[in-house]
Design a protein around this nucleic acid. Structure first.
Lengths: 178, 178
DNA sequence: TTCACATATATCAAATAGATATATCGTTTT
DNA sequence: AAAACGATATATCTATTTGATATATGTGAA
């Protein structure tokens, strides 16, 4: 596979906002990033080691007198330049893996009821996620003057717009199957 | 990682419609499936071998007197049952990896113009894809009476609904950034 | 006839997912 | 006060997937 590790950009991007541990990075991915990307420990920790080796991130000394081992990373100026070059690069891979759709696509091997049930499960999940996003939006709209918040806001809007489209589709799909 | 190879379901699903070679499977994934899933030769051929070993697919003899090597597979009744069990199983992983959104999320490290350009590239791609989907829809609506076509139709509708939402979001995003 | 392109199988290294092992810390329950 | 529990934290392993490449044949056009 080509030299093109996407998790590196997630890590550099998050470190451009804050100094973080690998565990922190995982938490942020599962939080604000999960709308459009994901990552596991199995990719985060090895990536952090290699980024350090190549000089894109730096380990902050933080031996505050014995206690839980904790490695806080910060981004270097080289890391920032790599991140910026990636943001400027126009090519981007956008793809989704929707098992629900696949189950529906091959729905012919099972009953219509099964198809409807799969749509229902999907709908419930989306409704729950949409509620969370709407709370995010309400909160962030109070603090939109801060520069970086605008970009976060845009991704929230993306989530809301697409999730509403999913719900519309669920209704249409039900009608088509009926 | 858990015993849970999704490519197996893509293969079994496609073989439940038709007997196909590995190459055919790849073509169908890049065609009708690509809206919600993808797969590469590097996963298809090994999966076909294992599915054959476990008795879910069968190799059809087709030595039609010398010529290009060609291995046509068909699904067995065991394979069909595995496919059906998977369709009945409610749990489904739905996730997207949108590099455009990630570039936007970390847009603060670059200029607003870069962010707008990334949105523009994304928009052009979606517009092109949407056109194709609308042609698909028009064609399939003429043949909706055939049982299996309904499920294909639903995935097309899903694509159209979400792509239209993406375009709406592009316009909103432009306004927010302005 | 040569060139490009589509068909077709197969394999490899790099990247990722998902699970698990290990250990510490803080809070709550017994 | 001890035990139990869940959150924090690093690290590693295997299975899976990607994306690229190697190899070879068939087909149509210049």
């Amino acid at each position: 596979m080509a030299k093109d590790r996407k998790i590196d950009m997630v890590i550099l991007g998050l470190l451009s906002h804050d100094n973080l541990t690998g565990y922190d990075i995982k938490k942020q991915i599962d939080g604000s990033i999960r709308l459009f990307w994901k990552g596991s420990f199995g990719s985060i920790y090895p990536a952090l080691s290699e980024l350090e080796k190549q000089g894109s991130v730096r380990r902050l000394k933080n031996n505050d007198g014995g206690g839980r081992e904790k490695i806080i990373y910060s981004i270097t100026s080289q890391g920032k330049e790599i991140l910026r070059a990636w943001v400027r690069d126009e090519k981007a891979s956008n793809d989704l893996k929707y098992e629900t759709l696949m189950k529906l696509f091959f729905g012919g091997v099972e009953s219509k009821e099964t198809a409807l049930r799969n749509i229902e499960v999907f709908e419930e999940q989306i409704k729950a996620d949409l509620k969370v996003l709407q709370i995010y939006r309400a909160n962030i709209e109070k603090a939109l003057d801060e520069e970086d918040h605008v970009y976060f806001y845009l991704t929230i809007l993306f989530g809301i717009e697409t999730y509403e489209a999913y719900l519309k589709w669920c209704n249409k799909a039900r009608k088509v199957l009926a």
